[in-house]
Design a protein around this nucleic acid. Structure first.
Lengths: 358, 358
DNA sequence: CTGAAAGCGCTTACAG
DNA sequence: CTGAAAGCGCTTACAG
């Protein structure tokens, strides 16, 4: 269903301003755009006329005439509800400030079909750069745009069937480090909770998880690896199921932010003694003493924005593939607090049982 | 600093398609836009030509010709980092789907000057509707646009010097209800933490707080009302200061989401017995058993989006001023758990001391 | 069912 | 320092 948009009329144009100021359109444009080569009294007359008529330049006209140079960049993300995506957008927004670039945001809910639709719309609007967290796997439909010089930057997940810049996380190093920490502290039954294996990040992190186990001399137990967890609610129940097993894991690692929140909410209620490490930090994570592999989505967004700005200015060249580091933050006392059945939360000690180590 | 944007050339135009298909531009347009009155073999030829040339219509040209009917709406918010704003944006985004409207988002960091800049840019881009969480107090600069028929919708804070639609919270009912609850349970020293008194929402909620105290027969103690708290960190330290006083409050009410998070983080560490109610829910709020006055920013965004869609279709009329309800969610056991110095967190009981009632 | 001409509101490329 | 003409890529308003 398309909205019927009635036309609006009656706007002042540059011509109107020129007429009132008694100059040509070109001269009016010169004054308004702050070019030199205008006598100051002429400039004044134009300014006065523009103010009187409440002239507001039409960027569509300007950008049409100037060909593809629009001042808008497109950002395609999964969903503004998810803090990962909204902070990514905040980072992009931040990078774009001071550069007179506008930000068009569209969300795909991670549906490949919707990605194509919204990307299409952005291309028709002739965005000057395109950033996207891809959900489709085939991006050959972007090939033509790339050849026309459109800067394209993939975020969080790499391009597959098209050449483009990308800004990704290092999904290996700190996940492995976290698993090694847990193994060093004696954990053998370590569970991993991940999103769909079709997602690049989920697979990367799971691979790192399995490798780390192997390195630690632990045979990966596939029954402890749960995937296709899309939201906090299912993460919470998956965690509850794990804990209810005859031989529950003694440690859990959650491989994205929604899964972390769901798992933590179950652990808080059901088992304060199970060790835990989450991927992506969240509100109160520090207060609750929860160990995390942190990444800053704003940093990723900002970085991508910087690349976009450079590409816009200098043109596309050899594609860059940036891997941003994560950070393993160990929180909690390092001692399992459950030696007492009634751990205190007073003082600066962590919330009971939620130390990532034990 | 403005980015220098080099032009990009070489795009296929409708003319190119028409030429290849051996028809006029008008006929090519008819086929591509799915109008009737085109012979099917003509249509096919045009489609083939368009596909061959990878034709992508130029919306700037179309919208320029069609006057002010662009397919973009502008949303001006404080900052995508803040979940309140990003969820607001998610709601707007949601309302706009299926309507072929694009979303341009700009953030102001609540700075009036920046608001003017970004709104200006959106107006030059001829957005078909403008939604904003205002930070400026004077919006007479929008008066001209309103008269030209631009739908303008204020979110979260009402318009002052311009006539426009607005979607606000009912900032009174549930704040008062929360205070009454606390008073009923015997609390006399109730503290309120709020953002800057210049902010409409802060003032509204503080007024409701004071009125409720008076209604409950409690003389408002201004030393318990802390304002100008802008972020979680200062909320955390303000809370710590309160608790360190000789006669600390026995209950605290935090009047927005960032303040809630900061206050809760201090309470979790320092005083699990102080009663607490937060405005705006947050991750783990339920798990931690924290009472809140909840509002759903998505709902506000979605509602505003609906109004925008209607205004776009039907034109602006008598301005609407919608007041959305909040919801007081009492969580926690209702009993002060601190009778035991070592409250347990096992089972489904709330985290220690964080029941909003006591 | 199809097309030629004009125009949306600017900027470009000249000419003076 | 200033201006007249043409054009960006579409759609409008006609005419056939």
């Amino acid at each position: 269903m398309t909205a019927e948009i009635p036309p609006r009329q009656g706007r002042t144009t540059l011509q109107d301003v020129a007429r009132l100021a008694g100059v040509s359109a070109k001269t009016a444009a010169r004054a308004i755009n702050g070019e030199s080569n205008v006598r100051s009294d002429t400039r004044e007359r134009v300014f006065t006329a523009a103010a009187t008529l409440k002239f507001r330049p039409n960027r569509l006209a300007r950008e049409l005439r100037q060909s593809a140079r629009t001042g808008a960049v497109g950002l395609v993300i999964g969903n503004l509800d998810n803090p990962f995506y909204s902070q990514l957008a905040a980072g992009v927004d931040h990078a774009l400030r001071e550069h007179d670039l506008e930000l068009i945001i569209a969300s795909t809910d991670d549906e490949p079909e919707r990605e194509k639709v919204v990307v299409q719309a952005m291309l028709e609007r002739r965005v000057t750069a395109l950033m996207l967290v891809p959900s489709a796997t085939d991006h050959s439909y972007l090939e033509g745009e790339r050849q026309l010089g459109l800067p394209i930057i993939f975020l969080d997940r790499p391009p597959v069937t098209v050449v483009a810049d990308s800004v990704l996380w290092d999904n290996h190093t700190d996940v492995r480090k976290a698993v090694h920490e847990l193994a060093t502290r004696g954990h053998r039954r370590i569970s991993a909770l991940a999103d769909s294996p079709e997602l690049f990040t989920a697979t990367e992190r799971l691979t790192a998880f399995r490798e780390a186990l192997t390195e630690a001399g632990i045979a990966p137990d596939e029954t402890l690896i749960l995937t296709s967890i899309h939201d906090a609610t299912s993460a919470a129940s998956a965690t509850a199921d794990l804990l209810a097993r005859d031989d529950p894991p003694t440690a859990i690692i959650a491989l994205n932010n929604r899964i972390s929140i769901g798992a933590v909410s179950t652990l808080l209620r059901d088992d304060p003694t199970c060790a835990f490490v989450g991927f992506d930090d969240f509100d109160l994570g520090e207060t609750l003493g929860i160990s995390v592999v942190t990444n800053d989505p704003r940093e990723m967004g900002n970085y991508a924005g910087q690349i976009a700005l450079r590409r816009i200015r200098e043109g596309t060249g050899t594609p860059e593939r940036i891997s941003l580091p994560t950070r393993l933050v160990q929180r909690g006392s390092g001692e399992r607090p459950a030696s007492s059945p009634h751990p205190s939360t007073r003082g600066s000690r962590p919330a009971p049982g939620l130390s990532g180590s034990d």
